[in-house]
């Protein structure tokens, strides 16, 4: 009778190993992403000021009462940036999660079914991937009429195919592996094979791809908003805030700059987190 010899891979050791691999920058990224999510949830509750009301003179410099000062109309800039973070962050996450779920499922079914279904699905995905998607999304929103929801829909339509491709390639790679062949030979039925033997193997790559993609989505949304394709005037969106206050850049430089800096931090923390996750999941 032979017993397992290396039983020391228990969970505390794995946790420690995971933390070591994430490294300090990855940890900063993950903590940052969590903080941003909390801030985005609370948003206006973090400040006493109404982001839409004129509450003081215009162009006040940063002070104790108004941390970021006031904008060209006299609204509290900090409150507006918080609202902007909320809409940008939640919108980006929802597009990414939608694309991730839809793309993964389509890729899973396409890759696991193979044959004609796979061929057809992949040609459709090819078509989407060969289109200049940002361009079409911009044009589409311009035609449909500006607005956050329209931007989200337009981007989501063009974002999932890439996940379908990543997921499908990963599934095909797994499908050829002996352990999946073994499961098939053991008579595991199709849906169970997909969910228990194929999908978990593709999840790490998909998670990494999605985390690193959040910043792309933030940038795409902010560009739309900057170009005037987001919510109309009184609303607070990070891109649009910079665009509308561009004229005051010479004197009151912080008014257009601060929303853009906020965008930078959203991207930076999500990229750090993605980089850390990649180190853990890929073990490099």
């Amino acid at each position: 009778m032979i017993r397992g010899m290396n039983g020391q891979t228990n969970s505390p050791a794995r946790l420690y190993e995971g933390l070591r691999l994430i490294g300090w920058s990855g940890s900063v990224g993950i903590v940052g992403v969590l903080l941003i999510t909390i801030v985005a949830m609370l948003a206006t509750r973090l400040t006493p000021h109404d982001p839409y009301a004129r509450i003081a003179e215009a162009y006040l410099p940063p002070s104790e009462t108004h941390w970021f000062g006031t904008d060209e109309v006299g609204r509290d800039l900090f409150a507006r940036v918080l609202v902007g973070v909320q809409s940008t962050w939640l919108a980006s996450l929802s597009v990414i999660i939608f694309s991730l779920v839809l793309g993964s499922l389509i890729g899973l079914i396409s890759g696991a079914t193979g044959g004609k279904v796979d061929f057809l699905v992949q040609r459709i995905v090819d078509l989407f991937l060969v289109l200049p998607s940002t361009m079409i999304a911009l044009a589409a929103v311009a035609v449909l009429g500006p607005g956050l929801l329209n931007s989200i829909i337009a981007l989501a339509i063009f974002w999932w195919p890439w996940y379908a491709r990543v997921s499908r390639d990963e599934i095909r790679r797994l499908y050829a592996r002996p352990h999946v062949e073994a499961a098939r030979a053991a008579g595991v039925p199709g849906p169970r094979l997909m969910l228990r033997y194929l999908l978990p193997g593709a999840v790490p790559s998909l998670i990494i791809a999605a985390t690193l993609d959040v910043s792309n989505m933030i940038m795409a949304l902010s560009v739309m908003s900057f170009l005037g394709l987001g919510q109309p005037a009184p609303s607070a969106e990070l891109g649009a805030m910079t665009a509308r206050s561009l004229d005051s850049l010479t004197v009151f430089w912080w008014i257009p700059m601060l929303p853009a800096v906020a965008l930078f931090f959203l991207c930076f923390f999500s990229n750090l987190a993605g980089d850390g996750l990649r180190s853990v999941l890929k073990g490099t």
Binding site: S215, A260, N271
Partner: peptide, 14 residues
């Protein structure tokens, strides 16, 4: 990573 996280809006304005 920081450079890759700089949105075009911030870069252009800066």
């Amino acid at each position: 990573i920081a450079l890759g996280s700089t949105p075009i809006i911030l870069l252009a304005v800066l």
